[in-house]
Computed example of a mutant assay.
Amino acid sequence: MDYLYYAKKYLINTYKHLPVVFTNAKGCKLYDVSNKEYLDFTSGIGVMALGHGNEKWIKAVEDQLEKLVHTSNIVLNIPVLKLAKKLTEISNMSKVFFCNSGTEANEGSIKLARKYSFEKYGKGRNTIITLDRSFHGRTMASLEATGEEELHKYFYPFPEGFKHIDITVEALEKAVDSTVCAIMIEAVQGEGGVNPLSKEFVSKVFEIAEKNDILVICDEVQCGLGRTGKLYGFNNYNVQPDIISVAKTLGGGLPMGAVLCNEKLKDTFKYGDHGSTFGGNPVCAAGAIEVLNEITDESFLAKVAEKGKFIKEFFKNNSSKNIKEVRGIGLMVGVEIKGKASEIQKKVFEKGLLVLTAGRDNVVRILPPLIITQEELEKGLNIIYEAIKSM
């Protein structure tokens, strides 16, 4: 069967597929239709934190499949209640709403922030400040929240009420006025080029927000849930937001997202304000519980942080005129190069390694499963370095 022909004929052209079709995977390795092995430095764009085929996760999902697959949200199920308790407690938040993806989590966060402000201050206070090079999703409001103009073309008109600003204290102070209800940030911008925010900037965001009763939304869809060596990316800045959006890692490979809110927002949404047919699915929830069981272990997170330090040390010791900068936190690292990252992606693919690109095709993005071994990490980094050096 010519699978690539099928892809070209039947799939809408929204992705530049690498010429491979995978059939199975284990740990940090994927296998194609001819059983060729590939090392995974993408984890499905930050999803497969526990790697592929984690036995505890599979058992949790299989056990739930045999019991209850789906109900409507007019009734309750045990896994989602257990997950709600665990996720809110470890996040130091009050309540949670479950959905299916990161873009949905961000849409819910936007609605929650605007309703809080409307109820407290009335009309006209609904602007959300977001940052240049941010990425918050593909649905209409989350796309308009995204600070990347290239992604906006063709899709106008967008919902109103967003300001995109440069990532400077000066731009932030200038943007804040009586119409602003929230500031939305990623502690580490993934799609935008793996850009960690400065501690000075994050501190100023929270200082201004507290002074003006402006909510802070932390989009932790990619940088959250263990990716940076801490539970959340914002934990690297010693702050606590009003709203947290999560997805990707949460479901362990199944579609799941969540909106978490603090005490002052816990009763903002009322009956009928928001909803999701599949949000809180018991099978997804059962898998998510197992994900959280593993990634919240302090020794697990410490190992992620150490692996992140190793990546930076590797590129410090293996420099190249083609490398401009290496940045990131934990196992969320971007290698900015003098050239096209998509060309490096193709080169390393030929050597059996999968990597991502970011920024404006000038950053090689490294997002391996958090359980990656030292041997696998060294192997992949050497392949990347040789490809960049030979540009």
Rank of each mutant, 00 (worst) to 15 (best):
Q374F: 08
K248S: 08
P282V: 11
D242T: 02
L151E: 04
I243P: 00
I90L: 14
A387V: 04
G280I: 03
E336K: 13
D63M: 07
I78Q: 13
A7L: 08
N235H: 14
G108M: 08
S299R: 10
S94I: 04
S142Q: 03
V355L: 01
A286P: 01
F201K: 11
K163T: 07
L30T: 02
K9Y: 11
N106G: 00
P255K: 03
M1D: 11
P369G: 08
K303G: 08
M391K: 13
A175H: 03
E343N: 06
I244R: 05
K120I: 14
Y10E: 04
A145C: 15
T357G: 06
L225T: 08
E306Q: 10
G339S: 10
V216L: 05
I78K: 12
P368R: 05
I323F: 07
L172A: 02
L151A: 06
Y121L: 03
K264W: 13
I167P: 09
P196Q: 02
L231Q: 15
E186V: 03
I383T: 09
I78A: 10
E186I: 00
D267G: 13
N13P: 03
A171R: 05
M391F: 14
C99I: 10
D213V: 12
I337Y: 04
I244C: 13
I128N: 03
V21L: 06
G137E: 00
Y271W: 13
P159E: 14
L39Y: 02
D361S: 06
A302H: 06
E62F: 13
T277W: 10
K351Y: 15
V202T: 09
Q240K: 14
Q240P: 07
K123H: 04
E298T: 09
K120T: 14
A171L: 03
A182V: 14
K29T: 11
N106R: 00
G334T: 04
D63K: 12
A305F: 14
V246T: 07
A84F: 02
D32F: 01
G124H: 07
K351A: 15
M93G: 04
K230M: 11
K346S: 13
A286H: 01
F118M: 11
F315G: 01
L381T: 06
A288Q: 10
N100A: 06
S276W: 00
T130Y: 00
I167C: 14
E207R: 14
D242R: 00
I128K: 01
G330R: 01
L65Y: 15
P282L: 10
K204A: 11
F135I: 03
G252R: 07
